[in-house]
């Protein structure tokens, strides 16, 4: 069988084992306050370990709390209880080694492509050989010739390339992606998926990618974390041992996708109240 279904077990690992873990999430709960003292539970007892260099796909239905989880890892939202550790350090706010890519390109319309890409580096005062690094990613993302364009002049696919370049120029150790390709057409999406995998293979960052698309999850990730339920829990984690580059037309890809769909169904039944 190609896809092994693993159960998640929360054990206290030995210190050496801890070192291998890039991201460790323990007993994470998140609720949002509602009027009249009530609260809306979103995430419940999330436990997750992500190894250095993993490409983890967080798969779940729309509105189940995937983005909230990503925002917590990125330090933009505080958890209600539980901890998130990166390299053994608890996260308490945005972190230099973590960069996030939002659902929309969130480009600044008053800056041109080049300044948008350099934005983060300028903010952090990392201006040494900025020109060189920005140009490197302009070339890598196929943006040559568009340096002086403004976001309003770009197609949505180009805008997405710019925002990927802006995130990657920071050379993140952890790259969080919140459905980055959701608003793209199929052709643009599959090209960018392919390019993202190539960049990951060469840069070696740890990626956490949120999606509701099973095909995308199987295409990109070496591990899939199934989220589900209300409030949202980790229902299953699945390793995908398919070699890159993966093709949507491969028999193995199709088989794997089918297995995950089935496992998703059984998990839903198992976790049903």
């Amino acid at each position: 069988m190609i896809c092994a279904t693993l159960s998640i077990d929360v054990v206290s690992p030995s210190p050496e084992c801890r070192d291998l873990m890039k991201i460790r999430i323990e007993h994470l709960d998140k609720y949002f306050p509602l009027p009249a003292g009530r609260r809306l539970p979103v995430l419940e007892d999330i436990n997750l370990e992500i190894q250095k260099g993993d490409f983890v796909m967080v798969l779940g239905q729309s509105g189940c709390g995937k983005s909230t989880l990503l925002n917590i890892i990125g330090g933009l939202i505080a958890p209600s209880s539980g901890t998130v550790q990166v390299d053994g350090q608890p996260i308490s706010g945005p972190h230099r080694s973590i960069t996030m890519h939002f659902q929309e390109p969130t480009l600044l319309p008053w800056l041109d492509v080049k300044d948008n890409i350099a934005f983060g580096c300028r903010i952090r005062g990392e201006t040494d050989d900025l020109e060189y690094r920005v140009n490197e990613f302009i070339e890598m993302m196929g943006l040559s010739g568009f340096e002086k364009s403004h976001p309003a002049e770009l197609s949505i696919g180009m805008a997405c390339r710019v925002s990927l370049a802006r995130a990657l120029v920071a050379r993140p150790e952890v790259f969080l992606l919140d459905e980055p390709f959701a608003s793209l057409d199929t052709f643009t999406r599959s090209r960018l998926q392919e390019e993202l995998i190539n960049i990951w293979l060469s840069e070696g960052f740890t990626a956490v990618f949120v999606t509701h698309d099973i095909a995308e999850a199987v295409l990109l990730g070496n591990r899939i974390v199934l989220l589900g339920g209300q409030p949202c829990r980790v229902m299953d984690t699945i390793a995908i041992d398919l070699a890159y580059p993966r093709r949507l037309t491969d028999e193995s890809f199709f088989q794997c996708k089918k297995n995950i769909l089935e496992s998703f169904k059984t998990s839903l039944e198992r976790n049903a109240p």
Binding site: G74, G75, L76, P94, R96, I98, T99, M100, F102, E104, T106, L108, F119, G120, I123, R124, R166, A170
Partner: peptide
């Protein structure tokens, strides 16, 4: 989302305001 993006990129309150 611009503000979230800037914070994620490491912007302080002052920079969020000015940038």
């Amino acid at each position: 989302q611009w503000i979230n993006m800037a914070r994620d990129q490491g912007a302080r309150d002052r920079q969020v305001l000015t940038k």
